[in-house]
Amino acid sequence: MTHVVTENCIKCKYTDCVDVCPVDCFKEGPNFLFIDPDECIDCAVCVPECPAEAIFAEEDVPADQQEFIQINIEMNESGKFKNITKRKPALADADEWNGKADKLQYLER
């Protein structure tokens, strides 16, 4: 099993989760973080650190967020994105986007 970053991370990209990850399995897209499923050890320390509440264990991903399991895999397999190992500032308008619905259309791949 692995953990999955879901829709609420889009246009927020808080990186609190990155600081606590013991295996550095997060990768950074332009406006979204995702988890390398091959590196995640399923420790769950990132879950309570996410201010957007966007990280779930794969088996707990809400029904309306299931497509993010595949999105995390595809973004990882693209090879375009690098690991992020240290906290960075969130996107400038992250607090305005946190909690908004229907953000998938804004995902930059």
Rank of each mutant, 00 (worst) to 15 (best):
M1E: 10
M1C: 10
M1F: 09
M1G: 11
V4L: 08
V4I: 15
E7F: 01
C9K: 00
I10C: 02
C12T: 15
Y14S: 13
T15Y: 00
D16F: 04
D16T: 10
V18F: 05
D19C: 09
V20H: 07
C21T: 04
P22R: 05
P22V: 09
V23Q: 07
C25Y: 03
K27C: 13
K27R: 15
P30G: 09
P30D: 12
P30L: 12
N31H: 06
N31A: 08
F32L: 07
F32E: 06
L33W: 01
F34I: 04
F34W: 06
F34N: 02
D38H: 10
D38G: 15
E39W: 02
I41A: 09
D42F: 11
C43I: 03
A44H: 15
V47D: 08
C50D: 04
P51T: 06
A52H: 06
A52Q: 11
E53A: 15
F56L: 09
A57Q: 15
D60S: 11
V61L: 05
P62E: 06
A63L: 08
A63V: 11
Q66F: 00
Q70F: 05
I71W: 00
N72H: 02
N72Y: 01
E74C: 03
M75L: 14
N76D: 08
S78L: 10
G79W: 02
K80Y: 05
K80E: 13
F81R: 02
K82C: 02
A90V: 08
A90W: 07
A90G: 06
L91Q: 07
A94G: 14
D95V: 03
E96F: 11
W97I: 01
W97T: 00
G99N: 05
G99T: 05
K100A: 14
Q105S: 13
Q105E: 13
Q105T: 06
Q105D: 14
Y106P: 08
R109A: 15
R109M: 14
